[in-house]
Simulated assay, not measured.
Amino acid sequence: MPDADGSRSFVQSLARGLAVLRAFDADHPELTLPEIAQRADVSRAAARRFALTLAELGYMASDDGRVFRLTPAVLQLGYAFLASQPEAKLLQARVAELAREVGEHTAACVLDGDDVRYVASVRSDRLVSLELQVGSRLPAYVTAMGRVLLGELPDAELDAYLRRARLERLTEVTTTDPDLVREAVRRAHADGYAVIVQELDPGLKALAMPARRPDGSVAAALNISMRTGIGRSREQERDELLTFLPALRACAAAVEADLAAAGR
C-alpha cells in the first residue's frame, strides 16, 4: 500500500488499519484472514495483527479466530461524522419527505475524492439491485449525483479528475470516453440537473440536482433512483425521470430554505 503523497507525516499503519475495516461490505460481511489481506492489500501477517487489534478494541469479532466480522462499535466512527454535520440531519429529513412523495429511493450525496458518498438515504423496496445507504460510495463519473457535483469543479480540477479516474465500463451503455464524460458533466451543470439511464446498472435510472448553501456553494446533490421498465427505450426512461423533476426541485428549494434559516 503506497503512501498517499510520499509525505513523512503519513502514518501507513493507520492507513492499513482503515483499509482492513473497509474490506468488509454488504457482499463480504465475514472474511478470513487471507481474504482480509487480499481485499485490504496487506500481508497475511499484517492482516492478522490488525484483525486481532481491532477485535481487542471492539470493532471486530471472531468466534474461532479464523473468520472475522465487524461489530456495531464501528458505527461510532460514522456517527461521529453525522453528529458533527447538522446538514446531514437536515438532508435526511428532506429526502425522507421526498421519498414519501414519490415512492422511490431518494438520497443526498457529497463528493468524496473521486467518488460520491451517501450522507442521507431512504431506500425503496422497488430498488433492490444496489445497497445504497448512508456511507455507501459510488464512482462519480457514472452517477447522476456525481455528474452534478463534478459540474461544480473548475475546468482544471475536472480535467485532473478525468485523467486519474478509472472510467470503467459497468454496463453496455456506460460512458467511459473522458471527452464524453466531460460533456455530460458540463451539460448537467448547464441544465441544473443530471439524468443517467442504465450506465451504473442495467436496471437503474436516476435523476439528480444540487442543493445550494446561501453562499452559492453546493451542500449536496439530491437524487431519485428507480428501476427501469421492461421493453422501454432509454429515451422513454429519461422522459419518465423528468416527470419527477418538479418534486426534486421542490426538495432542493426546501433544503436551501432550511440552510438559509440555519445560517449555513
Rank of each mutant, 00 (worst) to 15 (best):
T243P: 05
G146S: 02
L259R: 07
A51Y: 01
A184L: 13
A107H: 01
Q76T: 10
R238Y: 01
A93S: 07
V102L: 10
L167G: 05
L82C: 04
A80S: 13
P154H: 10
L222E: 04
S217N: 10
R169P: 06
V116Y: 05
L162N: 05
Q12Y: 11
L222W: 00
L150E: 03
L18N: 01
G65M: 00
R39F: 01
D64M: 04
M226L: 14
A250H: 02
R66G: 13
S84Y: 01
E30P: 02
T243F: 07
A253W: 03
L33T: 08
A219S: 13
A194E: 03
R16S: 14
T228A: 09
L132Y: 07
V197T: 03
A220G: 01
G229V: 01
R213A: 02
T175V: 15
D5L: 11
F24Q: 00
D25T: 07
E157L: 11
R39A: 03
C251L: 02
D5P: 11
A208Q: 04
V95D: 00
R94F: 04
D5V: 15
L132E: 01
S136F: 10
A211M: 11
L77T: 06
S217P: 04
G192L: 14
D63M: 02
A4H: 15
D159W: 07
V67P: 07
P86E: 01
A140N: 04
A45E: 14
S84M: 11
G146D: 02
R187I: 09
S121M: 09
T175F: 12
V119F: 11
T175L: 14
Q12L: 15
A107V: 00
L170K: 11
R8M: 15
V74P: 03
A99I: 08
H189Y: 13
D112Y: 14
T106N: 09
T175Q: 10
V116R: 00
D25K: 05
A188M: 03
P214C: 11
Q236C: 03
D215E: 06
E157V: 11
S121Y: 05
R238F: 06
T32W: 00
P139T: 06
L54A: 10
L57E: 08
A194L: 10
L14I: 15
T228S: 09
